[in-house]
Design a protein around this nucleic acid. Structure first.
Lengths: 609, 609
DNA sequence: TTGTAGGCTGGGAGCCGACAA
DNA sequence: TTGTCGGCTCCCAGCCTACAA
């Protein structure tokens, strides 16, 4: 008997992470069998030649969770659009079924102490104050019991206590059973969600295995996209939890051996039904970390209207390992070639071969699909081609299938079977000249974006001695990777001034020169997009090896920042500048930057208040 | 990636139990889709009309175990025989690939104490002495560490100690982790197996759920044969093991929701391939407690040569719940009718409707297949029919399929669609007359077998007072079922005389008259066939609700026994008489019998030495 | 503000002999 | 011979504070 219990979209989305967005009911989506196959555990052997994409209507959508592992998934019912009755842009009336209204939620990645057996949960103050019912601070210690429902509707009761010196919020009794039952380890996350009626929900996000962002390099590789991230995230050895076992600790649970082949068969069945124009169902695991294979039709259409060619600069959003944040990566299109010319000769799936500015972090991502990325709106480093004629060229159609959507375009100049552009290709100049790869190439693009030449980016306030003001600089922990190509990085300075601060510091440490201004010097590399998250989990920039990156409307542009003003003003400006909702001054306590030598530094300042 | 690791046939068979015997490689087997469907978890919807049996060659055989649950299964590759080149009795040359040589093994059903968390394992002396390396009894306490490999080749280390008053063998350290890891509960069994190089192996047999022998009453029922016994034996709630969970204790593991439908699909795929004469694979779970669906061809052919008709007496072997022993049950054929006239009108599968002598123990077994049973070699109670002509009649063939094996015969007199014999059926007299059902009917059959009339079965040594010698009779525990139809039971006496005993008893209890002879009086009802088992686990006749039954070559015949002689002679005679290998005198300490009133009694005697 | 180390305590895992079946 | 009971240890889950980042 299949457990068909659904859960609320709000909780589902909160657990799935920021990145996940399933198209609304009755909307039109493109179904990509290739993407579906990537999403399956193992290699999928398609038995017949199939269309690379099928335009469908999303007729049913169920948000669900595995009863044993809490692994999230969604069941989508898709009805291929009848091609004969296909009218171009007129979509069916959208049923605005619960436009998933964002409820306040808070996610925290578990520390070692949080996940320790027998330990408690250190509740970030923000979480306790915004998510939990208010404590009665007249009692000593302030204490209450809170109840939260998980994805199955099961209730978990936690003792919430405010104690310790200094005082802090803790979950004690009830926490360990939760951790043990859910088999959480350090690095996994818990998500608290407050419903409109103040009911509390709790979800989990298991950290992905492996290191770095996991993505698919090749469709023909033997790697297991799904197995590597989703289900088998549960397969990790769990010695700490299973200490009872003396010698044998292969106590993996929850996954049947056959799941890979089962999923593979489901893909084949779905693809065949889709090809026949018959209704079909797919199961989507949002945490499998493979790109969505049912993509909003308008998104695909818009993407395919763009003339893609090598040299174009773009950005792409990816989740961090624990899905706590979204990170934008920037890259350059190196070529436009179908990913699998034999099986899917006319597919736009992963048609873009790309080079990343930060190649070390995205080693496995060699190809992306046009709708996955956003073109940088600014002019590209190298002007677009003038020939062949700028009129749109049709995507080469597979001989066996009629054009499914005549509006889909791709830049051509690749043949179906020989995709390597000839050396004398007129587009060869689109490839950056030798020695302009990577960050250098980025430099070109950026310099064009920025009205100021790179050499002018230093502010007048910046003087060489400050470059080495080690008093307020600390080395990051040793497992923080050093940036590659430091010599090509640009130098930026951010001057954050704390003026008219209403509170004076009590005990400035002797070894720290109390600066009149908080000075950030270097290139602001990366920050995180929290703008869509109501309750912000403070970023632990150290453990995540993240880099501060300025991510505003003018993403990718280096900036010269000098912020002066009161705390409130600073707060406002930073909020605006970083595009994040800073609900707590602590966000300002830690800033990571890269100095002119490319070394990653960290400034630690006293709390603002 | 499927775990394709195989395990040794010896260990596999030791864990599977005595009943399981897979035909040898390259031998011919009949594949029965109906049986395969029963073996699956859920109802199987066959989409097309298929042959009810397919003669195949067993081309590959892999002994495997589920990596998580240790559930045993075998993968059989079958190649349907080409009908055109089919030559009747000439089978392919048998590859005698490892005729699974019986290794010494010992199985024990876990007691509550054995399965208790934190507890140890009480090692039966016989097991310790025959299976484990010898202890050094010069040390105090004698102690050693033994290592045993499980089905996955994982090693488990146990402290083996000989202590306590009185001294006994125990496994302490290492045992609890084993029990916890394997999630064993009281009633499950462990099997120790000693390889030729003295390596020790340990396997498990999970007790079947439900009570009594589980078997299938109907093919159209909604019961889940496989789910009830095999996989979902693992689905039981396991509160004791999962005490960590506070509110939510739905912590079932190991089974995917989809397994039922997955297995169903596998059945359909296999049956379709078989019908097309193409090679196919099946997975057989020996502990699913459904009859084998791949049966040695010779067995089926032999069975189908027999003219089956109502009134025939037969025996059938079944496992006890914990698979520690085989029990033979006796029954009478009540009619011969195809089990599913709509879907499988020409199938011999479960064609025999039966009545059991002990109907209470086999409530769910209404139908069996001819090859599952053994005809009692003696003449039936009622002479075989003289008409219609005794020449063999062909089994009605399904209109859509040619006869697959012209040698298969069945008694006819049932039409494909109307199977109820008409009241004036000439075979009506095969049904026993009213009032001759059950044991009464058996009596008729038996009385014909036995040269002595039933009334003469009492030995001269038997005198009425001894019937009621309650001094040496104790009531069985109250959950021992009382036999039905006690009044129809026959009276038998077994006189076991202990003469020339080399040891005299020390302290005969006052209330027990020391008899010169150990006297068993009543009908010996049932014993167990251990003859194929080298190391015999002593039978706990009480907890198993078993009955002593004489099971010799002349099975079903009541006997008048009077054993006189020395211990050695007694031992020899009992061994011979009961058909079991008594490797220990303790086997003689407990004898259960049924007195003339039908009450079950137990004689307890001093140890013989 | 919050992560981690380490102390204290109670309950239960794990091991034992006594006793009886 | 061996199943079960109750007692006894010792370990660790679970809760706490101190301290430092």
């Amino acid at each position: 008997m299949m457990d068909e219990k659904c859960l609320s979209p709000e909780l589902w989305y909160a657990c799935a992470g920021e990145m996940v967005q399933i198209p609304p009911l009755t909307s039109q989506v493109f179904y990509f069998p290739q993407g579906h196959a990537e999403h399956a555990c193992g290699p999928v052997r398609f038995t017949s030649l199939l269309p690379p994409y099928v335009l469908c209507t999303l007729t049913s959508l169920k948000y669900m969770a595995d009863p044993h592992t809490d692994e999230l998934f969604a069941k989508l019912s898709l009805l291929p659009l009848n091609l004969n009755h296909h009218h171009d842009d007129a979509e069916l009336p959208l049923i605005h079924s619960k436009p998933p209204h964002k409820l306040p939620s808070f996610a925290k990645t578990l520390t070692q102490s949080d996940a320790n057996n027998g330990g408690g949960f250190s509740v970030p103050r923000y979480c306790a104050e915004k998510m939990f019912p208010p404590l009665d601070f007249s009692k000593d210690p302030p204490l209450q019991y809170i109840t939260a429902k998980d994805v199955h509707g099961e209730s978990w009761r936690f003792k919430h206590i405010y104690r310790g010196t200094p005082r802090r919020h803790l979950l004690t009794t009830g926490w360990s059973p939760f951790v043990n039952n859910k088999k959480l380890v350090a690095g996994d996350s818990v998500v608290f969600l407050k419903a409109n009626n103040n009911d509390l929900y709790v979800g989990i996000r298991r950290a992905k295995r492996g290191n770095g962002v996991r993505f698919h390099s090749s469709l023909t590789s033997n790697s297991l996209p799904y197995g590597g991230a989703g289900l088998s995230g549960f397969l990790r050895e769990d010695d700490r939890k299973r200490k009872l076992v003396s010698i044998n600790n292969e106590d993996n649970i929850g996954v049947m051996n056959s799941s890979a082949s089962v999923m593979g068969e489901a893909v084949i069945e779905a693809a065949n039904l889709a090809a026949q124009g018959r209704a079909f169902d797919v199961t989507y695991y949002p945490r499998a970390s493979t790109p969505e294979f049912c993509v909003k039709a308008s998104l695909v259409k818009n993407a395919m209207h763009i003339k893609w060619y090598s040299g174009l600069r773009f950005k792409m959003a990816l989740q961090t390992q624990d899905s706590s944040r979204i990170t934008w990566f920037i890259g350059t299109i190196s070529s436009v070639e179908v990913a699998d010319p034999l099986l899917w000769p006319s597919s736009p799936w992963r048609i873009l071969q790309v080079k990343w500015d930060e190649a070390d972090l995205l080693e496995n991502v060699k190809r992306v699909s046009p709708w996955s990325v956003e073109l940088l709106t600014d002019m590209p480093a190298i002007p677009p081609p003038l020939s062949p004629s700028p009129k749109k060229l049709r995507l080469l159609q597979h001989p066996h299938f009629p054009p499914l959507d005549p509006q889909l375009y791709l830049p051509t100049m690749f043949s179906t079977h020989h995709l390597i552009p000839p050396p004398n290709n007129p587009y060869a100049y689109h490839h950056p000249p030798a020695g302009m790869q990577g960050a250098r190439q980025a430099f070109c693009a950026l310099s064009l974006l920025n009205p100021n030449p790179a050499g002018h980016l230093l502010t007048p306030a910046l003087r060489p001695p400050i470059h080495h003001s080690t008093a307020i600089q600390t080395r990051l922990s040793k497992n923080t990777p050093t940036l590659q190509n430091p010599s090509t990085s640009e130098n930026v300075s951010c001057l954050l001034s704390k003026q008219n601060s209403t509170h004076s510091r009590n005990n400035p440490p002797d070894d720290v020169k109390t600066p009149p201004h908080l000075v950030l010097f270097g290139k602001v590399i990366r920050t995180h997009n929290h703008s869509s998250c109501d309750a912000v989990s403070p970023v632990n920039l150290e453990t995540d090896h993240c880099k501060v990156f300025l991510d505003t409307e003018d993403l990718g542009r280096t900036m010269n920042l000098s912020l002066l003003g009161s705390y409130d003003e600073l707060y406002r400006k930073l909020t605006e500048m970083f595009g994040i909702l800073i609900s707590d001054a602590k966000m300002l306590n830690r800033v990571i930057y890269q100095d002119i030598k490319g070394e990653i530094k960290r400034v630690r300042d006293e709390p603002f208040r």
